[in-house]
Design a protein around this nucleic acid. Structure first.
Length: 300
DNA sequence: TCACGTCAAGCAGAT
DNA sequence: ATCTGCTTGACGTGA
């Protein structure tokens, strides 16, 4: 079991998710931004390793406009050395990596152009993993997509599109249950037909499920991960009080988290904390996890 | 220096 | 019809 947080670190002093507006696109702007993002990524990873946070979600903003038609710069070649350095650090320290493309990636879209754009975005994510020399335990997580008033057909469309993807993407793609459209059992159904691993989002599951025991859920989704996929991944969060349903909490509720660990003690998996204050909560969670037999860390 | 309108991209549910 | 939330708030113009 490893634990981590997504995308950015509020206290470290750099912002690794810088971007710019399309109309200010230029090679200079791109180089400056990507250089910043890659340097900051390595800084965050070093901070994480020091603090026993061995799971990290890399921001999709790493290379702004990477999948946009405007992109005419060989960023893969230009930043090869930067990627190599980060790759070495990740592999030396056994850091688990994931990415989560934005809501615009809709594999099952009814609109062929939306699918094409989604595919380009997935290619970009896959290229980042290639440059970091990551194996198939590094995952790109997406939601199933839209319902379009016909869930059966939309699930079939996902399966068809998934089956047509090339291997470089397929070996890394996983689906995640969401809070309104596709719950865990629906993701599992898709997994049965495609063998795609299912990421379990605990918070989304609380908001959208057909009331199965948590233990049963874990038994089911963990089985969708094969040896080459690595340990199953779980997204963890909880509801922010007084905000609309689905809003992530600002800072980790440690009692809630402890109960979650207790309820899942029979399983091993990696945890991504989707909590607004990022590393602050991750450090608190790692502190608690030091007393958990499953936790991979340096010193006690 | 800072407020604030806007930003590549999709979808569903609430208001 | 418009707003909100999600991957992740950040950019950048205007005052």
């Amino acid at each position: 079991m490893k634990i981590g947080y997504p995308s950015l670190n509020w206290t470290i002093g750099c912002n690794g998710a810088k971007t710019f507006h399309l109309k200010s696109y230029s090679h200079e702007k791109l180089i400056e931004t990507v250089e910043n993002n890659l340097n900051c990524l390595l800084t965050m990873l070093k901070f994480n390793v020091k603090n026993n946070l061995l799971f990290f979600r890399i921001t999709s903003r790493l290379i702004p406009f990477a999948s946009h038609p405007v992109m005419d710069f060989d960023w893969k070649g230009y930043f090869k050395e930067n990627f190599n350095e980060i790759s070495d650090f990740i592999n030396e320290n056994n850091i688990r990596i994931s990415m989560h493309p934005g809501q615009f990636v809709v594999v099952n879209s009814k609109d062929e152009e939306v699918f094409e754009r989604s595919l380009n975005e997935l290619r970009y994510h896959s290229h980042v993993f290639d440059l970091l020399k990551l194996d198939s335990t590094a995952k790109i997580q997406v939601h199933v997509g839209g319902v379009y008033a016909d869930k059966e057909k939309s699930m079939e469309r996902f399966i068809g599109r998934y089956n047509g993807l090339n291997k470089a993407i397929k070996r890394r793609l996983v689906i995640e249950n969401d809070e309104k459209s596709y719950n865990l059992s629906e993701c599992l159904k898709i997994s049965e037909k495609t063998e795609i691993p299912v990421i379990f989002d605990y918070f989304h599951h609380e908001l959208n499920n057909n009331s199965r025991e948590l233990h049963v859920c874990f038994e089911k989704f963990t089985k969708t991960w094969k040896a080459e996929d690595g340990l199953p991944m779980v997204d963890y969060s909880s509801q922010k009080e007084g905000k609309s349903r689905g809003t992530h909490i600002e800072s980790i509720d440690l009692d809630h988290f402890k109960k979650f660990l207790k309820d899942t003690e029979d399983f091993d998996f990696d945890i991504m904390l989707e909590i607004k204050d990022k590393e602050t909560s991750a450090l608190k969670a790692a502190d608690i996890l030091k007393y958990d037999k499953r936790f991979i860390h340096k010193e006690l």
